[in-house]
Amino acid sequence: MTGYGGRRSQAERDAITVEIGYALCSALFAAAVVFGAVAGPALLFELPDTLAVVLLRTGLVLAPVLFFARVVSVLIRFRRTAQPSQPGRTSPDS
C-alpha cells in the first residue's frame, strides 16, 4: 500500500511481482550451487560411506536454509528501498 493507506498502482504491483520472481530464482540458483558444491563430491566420487552421507545431509540442510535466507533478504531489502521518504523532509542521500 502507499504511504497514506491508498491502493497500490499497477507499476507498484508489477515491481513487487518482479522482485518476488527475482528473489525466488536467485535463491533457487544459490541453493543449487551450494548443494552441488557440498554434496557434489559425494555424488560424483566414490567416498567412504560415512563421508558421503555427511556431505549429502549437509547439502540437504544448507540448501533450504540458504534458499529461505536469500528470499527473505531480497524481499526485506526491496521493502526498505520501496518506502517513500516523508513529505517535507529531505532525504539523507540528497
Rank of each mutant, 00 (worst) to 15 (best):
E19G: 03
R89P: 02
C25I: 10
Q86L: 15
P48G: 03
L43D: 05
A23R: 01
A31E: 02
A37C: 05
S73T: 15
S9D: 10
G3F: 04
G21P: 01
E19S: 15
P92L: 05
D49Y: 09
F45M: 09
G36N: 03
Y4C: 12
A27D: 03
P84M: 12
A42T: 10
A63R: 00
F78N: 02
A52C: 05
A15Y: 00
L56T: 04
S73E: 15
A23H: 03
F67A: 07
G21S: 01
A42F: 06
R89Q: 13
D49K: 10
F78V: 01
A15Q: 05
R79M: 11
E12P: 03
V18F: 07
L60N: 14
F29A: 14
G5V: 07
A63M: 04
A23S: 06
A69N: 10
L66I: 15
L51A: 12
A30Q: 07
C25H: 08
V18K: 08
D93V: 12
V72Y: 08
V53K: 09
R57H: 09
L44T: 05
T58K: 05
R57C: 14
V34Y: 02
L62R: 02
L60A: 13
A63W: 01
R80D: 04
F29L: 15
F78P: 01
V54M: 10
P41S: 08
R13N: 12
